[in-house]
Design a protein around this nucleic acid. Structure first.
Lengths: 237, 237
DNA sequence: TCTCCGTATAACCAAGTTTTAACAGCTTTG
DNA sequence: CAAAGCTGTTAAAACTTGGTTATACGGAGA
């Protein structure tokens, strides 16, 4: 969840409302509340809601009916709140088009997990993380298709085209000394022949971006009179 | 559910296997079983599976790990079977990418309802008659039917036709680099071939309207020598 | 320790790419 | 038909990139 999810809670029990609101806000959600179905619908029309939490037992309305109505006009994910023991109701809830349900009394953390799960489902699948060829080494992951470098915590490290090519050359020939000539070959298949030292500069620029301490490089070591070598093991994924 | 759903049960408890197989077949499902993760993966590779039912406690493997592995290569819906009382496990299950879980001992009818619910979600959300298909990303909502863009606080942002089309192309292919060519294809299915740079201009016009700071765009980033990419996650609503 | 020589890096610059203002041709609208 | 608005084209400006240069740095061997 990169952005703030917007949760709409529909309940007429003030205790639950304030408890949930507080909790979800602390968890970084934007929260709206509705005490009746009507209010729910008007909020849905005017706000971007990413998930609805709907109590089955409202004093004057029936959560199932609301859910069914909602389904005729929107496909926003719905999580139902049900009381314990209403076993058949559970089933009905899911058959009616709810996306999930949580039984009261519920554990707030569990509810959060459900919300996350439901939101994840609603996301448009970013290109399948699947069969994307990746090279991992140290705490880095090189996504070849996307030409992206990400660190362990998934932050994107910005690399220019040439920097990426150079790093890729290393990742494809790990733990081998690569001469400047070889590196030029790898990064510029064609015969254009820039002055050697340009590699040094690119190396320096790379190190600045991925070495913990660029002054004493750990990942890409210099081999005097030889070239450079990527120290880490590389895994294909 | 128009055709027979194809359920893959992964468990090493013969009782559960035969019970479930029988029940689900009676209910009109096609059923396959796997007794180990390996078998599961090979079945997934060779058969069209619409939902996987995965036991958390296999004798020699860990269902959570299997689920996680599965998620790295497929988005087939997964329902986990967990024993009662493993509360934290529940939460972990959902966070791991499972779509739902059922606690043992479970009621076969309930499981069927879960399967149905999960399958319904997985269907390409054929927009119900009156539903307004929306794509939300960042603090924006794109109303496809009305061709409107609204911000979180519900203000309408006026977009011209071309601007809307371009933004829609991004919203439908989030987090992917789209070349100018692709963007031309998406926005003008037909073969008219305006000069590339026209995309740049449209991008610039879009950014002026939706980037907080158009000078350092956050939402639609430039990929030098590549094209453009929508950074935000997109949800259908 | 000192020198030599290879390497590191900052700074600069040229080439190439992207951004954007301005404009012109079209289409739409009243 | 005029006015308004949309969109592609153009061109100038801004920005990026990556090679070159110059200088600093540092290790090996004398």
């Amino acid at each position: 969840m990169t952005q703030m999810p917007h949760v709409l809670i529909v309940d007429d029990d003030e205790d639950i409302l304030s408890l949930l609101t507080q909790f979800l806000q602390n968890q970084g959600c934007q929260v709206a509340v509705a005490r009746r179905g009507e209010e729910m619908f008007s909020l849905l029309d005017t706000q971007a809601v990413s998930v609805v939490i709907l109590d089955v037992m409202l004093r004057r309305e029936n959560g199932f009916d609301l859910c069914r109505q909602l389904r005729t006009r929107s496909s926003v994910p719905v999580i139902m709140l049900t009381a314990v023991g209403e076993h058949t109701d559970r089933v009905v809830g899911l058959e009616i088009g709810a996306d999930d349900y949580v039984t009261k009394p519920f554990n707030a953390r569990e509810l959060l997990a459900r919300i996350k799960a439901v939101l994840r489902r609603a996301e448009i699948p970013a290109p399948p993380q699947d069969a994307r060829p990746m090279l991992s080494f140290g705490c880095w992951r090189l996504d070849i298709a996307r030409r992206e470098l990400r660190s362990d915590d998934n932050t994107l490290i910005f690399l220019s085209g040439g920097e990426f090519d150079l790093l890729l050359a290393f990742a494809e020939h790990p733990q081998r000394v690569l001469t400047r000539d070889m590196l030029l070959d790898f990064t510029r298949g064609d015969a254009s022949a820039p002055f050697d030292r340009s590699i040094d500069v690119q190396i320096s620029r790379l190190r600045r971006k991925l070495e913990a301490d660029p002054k004493s490089p750990d990942l890409i070591r210099t081999v005097r009179n030889g070239g450079y070598i990527l120290m880490a093991q590389v895994r294909r994924t």
